[in-house]
């Protein structure tokens, strides 16, 4: 059943490629703006890179949250999901996973290229990609709760940022921290395993909380 949802969402994303591309280009533009704002001093850029890339990833992933449930809400598919005999948490897991495949994975793939703009060493580029690979699914899963709670509300897009961004902070700290640790020549295993732990915890709790939120929002 999860596979059905993922297949459908990927099919829809394929038929509306522009949505995927806007998120990706938003990410690229935000990251590219920083050198213009703070100057091209390479040492400083190298220091800022992990934080800049990660903050841009948070914003890009959050911007795409609005789409996660809203189109299904508008055309009535969400009603049918709530009335489906299969578990809603499972469906929600599928939705969050396809959100990640459509918005998270492109960011992960693009990050090394952007890291080169900031003159990051090769090891740091690898750590950056790895940290995003572990961290972006957490963003999709936690963000799903916010998206479900703000469903159909006026000003939902801004509201979701208020709800979700504070919850993203741990991922930001350890994601950017892993890259910093690697450039500083320290171990980054602990950071990555903590990101992995966050991923596991959000995999267990978030679909359940999102399902409850959807039922509340649709009642």
């Amino acid at each position: 059943m999860i596979l059905w949802i993922i297949k459908r969402d990927l099919l829809l994303a394929m038929r509306r490629r522009s949505d995927v591309l806007t998120t990706l280009f938003f990410f690229i533009i935000v990251v590219s703006l920083f050198p213009l704002g703070v100057g091209p001093e390479m040492n400083m850029l190298r220091m800022m890179a992990p934080g800049v890339v990660w903050v841009a990833a948070l914003l890009a992933s959050m911007l795409a949250l609005g789409r996660m449930f809203s189109s299904d809400y508008v055309d009535g598919t969400l009603e049918q999901m709530l009335l489906s005999p299969v578990s809603l948490s499972g469906l929600v897991m599928g939705k969050a996973l396809s959100h990640w495949l459509v918005t998270g994975v492109p960011l992960v793939l693009m990050a090394p290229v952007l890291g080169i703009q900031y003159d990051l060493p090769v090891e740091a580029l690898m750590v950056l990609t790895l940290s995003l690979l572990l961290g972006t699914p957490v963003l999709s899963l936690v963000g799903a709760i916010g998206a479900a709670l703000t469903l159909g509300l006026r000003g939902g897009g801004v509201l979701v940022s208020l709800l979700v961004l504070p919850l993203y902070i741990p991922v930001l700290i350890f994601g950017a921290g892993a890259v910093e640790a690697s450039t500083a020549g320290m171990g980054f295993d602990a950071h990555l395993s903590l990101l992995g732990a966050f991923l596991l915890v959000s995999l267990v709790f978030s679909p359940w909380a999102t399902a409850a939120s959807l039922r509340i929002s649709m009642a």
Partner: peptide, 24 residues
């Protein structure tokens, strides 16, 4: 109900946030 969900999610997250900020 929506407020309750976000408050509970917040309460679960506070220790994690606090710990992360401490580490940071």
């Amino acid at each position: 109900k929506a407020g309750a969900i976000i408050a509970l999610v917040g309460v679960v997250n506070i220790p994690i946030i606090y710990f992360s900020v401490q580490w940071w």
